[in-house]
Simulated scan of single mutants.
Amino acid sequence: MSKYLLNKFLFTVDRDPTLVERYRSEPHELVTWWESTVANTLLNCHTDEASTWLRFTAEERAALIDHDHCKLFELGAHPFLTLTLFIAMFERDNNEPLEYQKAYGARMAHFAMPYPDIAT
């Protein structure tokens, strides 16, 4: 399991509107593409340097594909990264102000302290 890789995925996808839309509409394809092309590049590095060993576990991949922010949190993804990305993807589906954010919080309410470790 790599909390770093989960957070890197959430961070990089959230910063590109095209990737946000792809993640919303075709999550399996985007996760597969991202893992094979972006996962092993260095974050914020503009050279051809890359690693070769980073991969999602089956559990991480399934949580990403299912847009399961609760499972991602359990696996160590930072909740602010999932919240900002998921707001970009799903807030438009709601009619009331902060409706998505309240639903996100309600789905996370079952977590009690100590919370899962989100340190990378």
Score class of each variant (00 low, 15 high):
M1I: 02
M1N: 07
S2P: 01
L5N: 03
N7H: 08
F11K: 04
F11M: 00
T12L: 14
T12C: 07
V13L: 03
V13M: 10
D14G: 02
R15E: 09
D16W: 06
D16N: 14
D16P: 06
T18W: 00
E21K: 11
E21S: 08
R22V: 03
Y23Q: 02
S25Y: 01
S25V: 11
E26M: 05
E26F: 12
P27Y: 01
P27F: 00
P27M: 01
H28Y: 02
V31D: 07
V31Y: 06
V38N: 02
V38C: 09
A39T: 03
N40C: 14
T41V: 04
T41I: 03
L43P: 09
N44F: 09
C45G: 05
D48R: 09
S51C: 11
S51P: 01
T52D: 15
L54N: 01
L54Y: 05
R55A: 11
R55I: 02
T57A: 13
E60G: 06
R61N: 04
R61D: 01
A62H: 11
A63N: 08
L64N: 10
L64A: 07
I65T: 12
H69E: 03
C70D: 00
L72F: 06
L72V: 12
A77I: 12
A77E: 06
H78I: 10
H78D: 12
P79S: 07
F80P: 00
T82Y: 08
T84Y: 15
L85A: 05
I87D: 14
I87E: 15
I87L: 15
A88L: 05
R92H: 08
D93S: 03
N94A: 08
N94H: 12
P97M: 13
E99F: 12
E99C: 09
E99I: 12
E99A: 15
E99M: 12
Y100V: 05
Y100D: 00
Y100L: 10
Y100W: 14
Q101I: 15
K102T: 12
A103L: 13
Y104A: 02
A106Q: 13
A106M: 09
A106C: 04
R107L: 14
R107Q: 11
M108S: 05
M108T: 02
A109E: 14
F111I: 01
A112M: 10
M113C: 03
M113T: 11
Y115G: 04
D117R: 01
I118Y: 07
A119Y: 10
A119Q: 07
T120P: 04
